[in-house]
Design a protein around this nucleic acid. Structure first.
Length: 269
DNA sequence: AGCTCATGGCGAG
DNA sequence: TCGCCCTGAGCTG
């Protein structure tokens, strides 16, 4: 259930646990047995995240490509390998560390030649230092699609999901329905810089917080989390409740099959 | 036990 | 635009 920040968080933890170590790889569930056999016993060279995609590189020039989709989960820990409970697609472990993968949309082995184009298909990722926002701007600027849809397009903004989409639009007072071509260069630059900040912070924390300190209600620090995604947000899943800034009821609508949350007053245009 | 929902994305029509 | 794939949690009975 992850946006790009969580994938980068996983990549760092997996990299720390397994880089330069020979690892055992298997598939208790059986659906990745063939792939696991191709990398089992090999040394992990590096772990990369690009948007919501994770790539684990081995010393035989093969990569395991993982995409969690909506339901996928990693469980990463130290110490003894636990017995598998439920549907475990893949396990990676050494003497001192283990990782369990369940429910991914994609878990496959790629060669170098297959991995390169797979990465190229992913758009600029605000979390990566090598990201080129110009290519995102080119697409936004000549698109009549609503900015709320473009933000979810992984070839335009890689790693942005439903929470960052809703929150960055709120923070910039922009209607999700504004056509891309009506977003100014100044507005785009400000939103991109904000995504870099928010998503980088989200990578360190492994959760998404977007509410500026000055807007945090007094009690919120100690109050139970409003929602299981785990962070403090302005509008995501807050439909029917008052906007923190203006008190207007936060609204929800369907956009391309996903729920879209926004404040109709703060984000009128 | 069965239903609904979730931070995603694909392909068919 | 719809249906479908992946899994588990949190309800309702």
């Amino acid at each position: 259930m992850p946006e790009g920040n969580v994938i980068h968080h996983h990549a760092r933890r997996l990299g720390r646990a397994f880089t330069r170590h020979p690892v055992r790889v298997d598939s208790p569930q059986g659906r990745f047995s063939d792939g696991a056999g191709q990398v089992d016993g090999h040394v992990v060279r590096k772990v990369e995240a690009h948007g919501k995609h994770l790539f684990i590189g081995f010393d035989n020039r093969l990569w395991v490509h993982v995409h969690l989709g909506l339901f996928g989960k990693w469980r990463i820990g130290r110490g003894d390998l636990p017995d598998p409970v439920g549907q475990v697609r893949m396990r990676i472990h050494t003497e001192g560390a283990f990782a369990e993968l369940r429910g991914p949309t994609v878990c496959e082995v790629l060669t170098e030649d297959e991995k390169r184009p797979a990465v190229r298909r992913i758009g600029p990722d605000p979390i990566r230092k090598d990201a080129d926002p110009q290519s995102a701007w080119d697409r936004v600027q000549r698109s009549s699609a609503p900015i709320g849809g473009l933000l979810m397009d992984q070839r335009v903004f890689a790693g942005v999901g439903n929470i960052y989409r809703a929150e960055v639009l709120f923070r910039h007072g922009m209607s999700p329905y504004r056509p891309g071509r009506e977003v100014s260069a100044t507005e785009f630059d400000a939103m991109w810089r904000d995504l870099v900040l928010l998503m980088t912070a989200g990578t360190r924390r492994g959760r998404i917080d977007t509410v500026r300190d000055e807007h945090l209600p007094e009690a919120m620090g100690r109050a139970p989390r409003e929602d299981r995604h785990g962070g403090e947000v302005y509008v995501y899943r807050r439909d029917g409740r008052p906007c923190y800034l203006c008190g207007t009821e936060v609204r929800v609508a369907d956009l391309q099959g996903r729920k879209l949350y926004w404040c109709p007053a703060c984000q009128a245009t």
